[in-house]
């Protein structure tokens, strides 16, 4: 065991002052040290994308990043998507298009899709499919996830 260093994780606009070992992953720190359990861990080796969060505007796999690397950066997780009781268009689209079953992969897909669409609102359908194929879902067969993200993309474009 090595020494713990103090860091600040800014999650959804709130500061969490915590102390972590250098090896602690961002995913574990978000979940265990900051109590934000909406971010899920499906593999811990960077393949499934369930742990996707947005760090300084970029979707990242929080199981592949050390918590210390995110010190002071702006982190967004699924808990921050809705505004009060009003769901984000992406969340609503997942509900409308039955884009989730067990819901375990869902936070990762939501953050991936939101992160990419905010950065690149005009992304083509093909590129969007490429992006979505970097996360795994074992329940839905993806068809409804793709439908949901396309519908939300159209709405987000209209709104911006």
């Amino acid at each position: 065991m090595s020494e713990k260093t103090p860091i600040t994780l800014k999650i959804n606009g709130r500061d969490h002052k915590i102390a972590v070992e250098p090896r602690r992953t961002l995913a574990d720190a978000i979940r265990e040290d900051c109590g934000q359990t909406g971010t899920h861990i499906g593999c811990e080796h960077g393949v499934c994308g369930a742990c996707t969060v947005i760090v300084n505007g970029e979707p990242v796999r929080s199981c592949l990043m050390f918590a210390a690397q995110a010190d002071g950066k702006a982190i967004r997780t699924v808990e921050g998507l809705a505004k009060g009781n009003e769901l984000h268009p992406m969340q609503r689209a997942f509900m409308d298009h039955h884009g989730l079953q067990c819901g375990f992969c869902t936070p990762g897909f939501l953050m991936l899709a939101v992160g990419v669409l905010e950065r690149e609102p005009q992304i083509s359908d093909d590129d969007l499919l490429d992006v979505l194929s970097s996360n795994l879902c074992r329940c839905t067969g993806y068809q409804n996830i793709i439908k949901a993200v396309r519908a939300a993309a159209a709405e987000m474009r209209g709104a911006s």
Binding site: Q36, T39, L87, L100
Partner: peptide, 12 residues
């Protein structure tokens, strides 16, 4: 089932 799962309020 959907609302808690979409908002990070699941209890896995």
């Amino acid at each position: 089932e959907d609302p808690p799962l979409l908002t990070g309020q699941g209890r896995f």
